[in-house]
């Protein structure tokens, strides 16, 4: 049978995308569907799943105190970490967008924490820096500041994890740098001729011009923040007193310490729903504030 040229072309196309398609189907779509199905079952890994309807969801919402605790911790974490990180990244990006000697070197140096920031090794390093007798408290002691129980106090530990997250500001910073370069120089020039102050220029030209990237950064950091795991897993193990017990860690414990896969699947869908809703709300409230040169997709 001879295929028409068009058919042949499209068949070729499918073959080209097949590796990606298989990866998607096997490693993403299948687990996604499976976890949804498992979320309605009692599934203890070594047994076969038993259908129990909505019972997992109801237990999580009604009887699981640790779920609410971890949700509160996660929200607190995101609310602290995301703004701090974005402000810091923008601040550094503005400095690094100046024409300085050796600027490329600085840009690389500031990006490095993002590359290995989420790693276990850095988390362990963080633990040693911030323990009672660690480097940070020793430096404070030199300055005659009393030592802070960075990781051992339920009131402070989460803040220390926030610092770890803020320290990994590099990827946001790189995006800000690119956005800052895109702001047309003539806008600045016109503003300067009209006698605008630096502050005015920042609020009325720079910020609106980079607002698409700003909203993208906030959104991505928020989504990542809700799923953050390494810090609380490696450094504090969720303690002390569950003050750093993030929802991703709870999910992990239910799945891999208690082997309640169905329950953990339900939990992950609840987390998905939360992130989904927040993203939707975020889009609704920021679409008016974000400036797209091409008018965005608003008609």
């Amino acid at each position: 049978m001879r295929l028409s040229a068009a058919k042949k072309r499209s068949r070729m196309g499918y073959i080209y995308i097949l590796p990606w398609l298989l990866g998607l189907l096997i490693f993403q779509l299948y687990p996604l569907i499976a976890s949804f199905a498992y979320s309605f079952t009692e599934y203890r890994v070594t047994g076969s799943p038993k259908f129990i309807g909505l019972s997992n969801y109801l237990t999580i919402l009604k009887n699981d105190d640790l779920f609410w605790q971890s949700l509160a911790v996660t929200f607190k974490y995101v609310l602290m970490a995301v703004p701090l990180k974005i402000i810091f990244a923008l601040f550094v990006a503005i400095i690094l967008s100046q024409k300085l000697r050796g600027i490329n070197w600085y840009r690389t140096a500031y990006y490095i924490p993002s590359i290995f920031g989420g790693s276990v090794a850095v988390s362990i390093l963080w633990r040693f820096l911030f323990m009672e007798d660690g480097l940070v408290n020793r430096i404070l002691a030199q300055l005659n500041i009393p030592s802070v129980p960075w990781l051992s106090s339920p009131h402070v530990a989460l803040l220390t994890l926030v610092f770890l997250s803020v320290w990994q500001f590099g990827s946001s910073m790189v995006l800000f740098l690119a956005a800052l370069k895109q702001v047309p120089e003539d806008l600045y020039e016109a503003a300067r001729i009209d006698g605008a102050s630096r502050r005015h220029i920042f609020w009325h030209i720079t910020l609106p011009m980079i607002s698409p990237i700003l909203s993208f950064n906030v959104l991505m950091q928020m989504i990542n923040g809700f799923q953050d795991f390494t810090g609380s897993f490696v450094i504090t193990g969720g303690g002390p007193l569950h003050s750093t017990y993030m929802i991703a860690l709870k999910l992990y414990n239910d799945a891999f310490a208690h082997f309640k896969m169905g329950y953990a699947s339900a939990l992950s869908w609840i987390l998905f729903l939360i992130i989904f809703l927040i993203t939707a709300v975020f889009f609704k409230f920021t679409s008016a504030a974000v400036y797209y040169e091409d008018g965005g997709n608003r008609k």
Binding site: R127, E132, D133, P149, L151, S152, P154, G239, P240
Partner: peptide, 18 residues
Amino acid sequence: QPLGEASLFASQMEQNPI
């Protein structure tokens, strides 16, 4: 040793600097 300090060395107490 205060529990919060000790707990940084869960199942690796030998790494506790003290």
